[in-house]
């Protein structure tokens, strides 16, 4: 049984590397990624599960890191935006003007990246279902749609 009663040093697998980090059982994964590991590409937007800015991949699936304890992540593979290495979706967001202020971008990238891996043949309904988990206040979503479709259709 995994058990932590207080601040403890634990191993997390983040972006393909095992890292040792001090966590408090009450810390969210979002907090630990940003404050303890300096991975500030993952953003807080609401800390309530509503906006998706904090989305990371856990074992390949998108998860809102504000609603996950860091302790829960032990034994799982975490990928943050910093762990996307030249993923097609990144280029596609640039080429399709998929962002303005860029604050929501990491979260959208993670959802799109997972979608491409899990459902490479996703239709519009599925794309919408996945991407509705995230909010963007700058764009009108049109460019984001172009960006994700370009990747799903292997045009990037």
């Amino acid at each position: 049984m995994l058990a932590f009663s207080e601040k403890s040093i634990v191993k997390l697998n983040v972006n393909g590397e095992n890292v040792t980090v001090m966590i408090n059982p009450s810390y969210t994964l979002l907090h630990v990624l940003r404050e303890e590991l300096g991975l500030t590409g993952t953003k807080p937007g609401c800390e309530n599960g509503d906006c998706g800015a904090c989305t990371v991949l856990v074992d390949g699936w998108p998860i809102k890191s504000c609603l996950m304890l860091a302790a829960e992540a032990i034994g799982h593979q975490i990928v943050t935006v910093e762990g996307l290495k030249n993923a097609p979706i990144q280029k596609s967001f640039v080429e399709n003007w998929g962002f303005q202020c860029g604050y929501c971008t990491s979260g959208f990238l993670m959802v799109c990246h997972a979608l491409k891996n899990i459902h490479p043949d996703a239709n519009d309904f599925v794309i919408e279902q996945w991407l509705q988990s995230n909010l963007c206040r700058c764009t009108g979503y049109g460019e984001i749609k172009n960006a994700v479709k370009a990747v799903l259709e292997n045009r990037i």
Binding site: M1, L2, A3, F4, N24, T28, H31, L69, A71, E72
Partner: peptide
Amino acid sequence: MIAFDFAYFRPNTLKEA
């Protein structure tokens, strides 16, 4: 950020839980 501390347990069996 949660303002209070608590412990975390992840049992492997119902009994442990």
